[in-house]
Simulated assay, not measured.
Amino acid sequence: MVREQEVQTATVVAIDRQSRFVTLREGKGDKHEFTIEAGPEVRNFDQLKVGDVVIATYQAAAALELLPAGSASTGVVTSSDAARAPKGTLPGAAAQQSISITSKLTAIDLKKHTVTLQGPDGKQRLIEVKDPERQARMTKLRVGDLVRITYVEAVAIDVTPKPR
């Protein structure tokens, strides 16, 4: 499994309540300022104050799963979910989405370190296996096996009150 996480922090430096534009500053100095529009879906906008700290956390993960032939069907499964801050609290939100693709292994080339997958759309895709550890495990693969690749990403936005 491959995982990645990035956290960005910015301070609210200006709010235009009528247009719902919020100016944020990353780090020190005004050279890292940017303005965003807080659309109508941003609940509790009126709770936001200059000096509040906005923390955005982005996470992504990818996983590869090998399945025996016939143990699943090829296809694509997607899902998504979102949540907003409860009414009356500071603004905040979270959203996640995932996609899982199950393909059939149709060819293996141990000398070139490649495999060919047939996706749910019927197209063949040649994949080069670059990781030496995975190259060594290629001998266990069999034509007809299934490969499921799942990718998930999520973002969360939290606002904390201006530090005192």
Rank of each mutant, 00 (worst) to 15 (best):
V76W: 00
A95E: 12
V147A: 14
P40C: 11
T114D: 02
G88K: 09
L141I: 01
K31G: 14
A83I: 02
T11K: 10
T23P: 06
T78A: 07
G88T: 03
D109Y: 01
L66K: 09
E4T: 14
A56V: 13
V152H: 12
G29K: 02
M1H: 03
L146A: 09
Q96G: 10
T102G: 06
D30R: 07
G92Q: 04
V53A: 04
S71Y: 07
F45A: 12
G144D: 08
G29M: 01
R3D: 15
A14S: 14
T89M: 11
D81G: 15
V143S: 01
P163E: 12
G27V: 08
S79G: 15
L66C: 07
T78Y: 05
K49N: 08
K162P: 00
A154V: 03
A94G: 09
K104D: 01
V54K: 00
G27E: 02
L64Y: 09
M138T: 08
G51F: 03
T11Q: 13
E6K: 15
I55M: 12
E33K: 08
G39S: 13
Q18R: 10
R134S: 13
T23D: 10
A10N: 11
L146P: 09
E33W: 03
G70K: 01
Q59S: 13
V53H: 09
T116R: 11
D52T: 05
R142A: 14
G88A: 07
S100E: 14
T106A: 02
K28P: 08
G29W: 08
K111G: 13
R3L: 09
I157S: 01
E6I: 14
V77W: 02
P161L: 01
R137T: 13
A69F: 04
L90S: 12
P40A: 12
S103Y: 05
V42F: 00
P120F: 04
T74G: 00
G119R: 11
Y58W: 13
D81W: 12
L67I: 10
A82W: 05
L141P: 02
R25N: 05
Q118D: 07
L126N: 12
L90N: 08
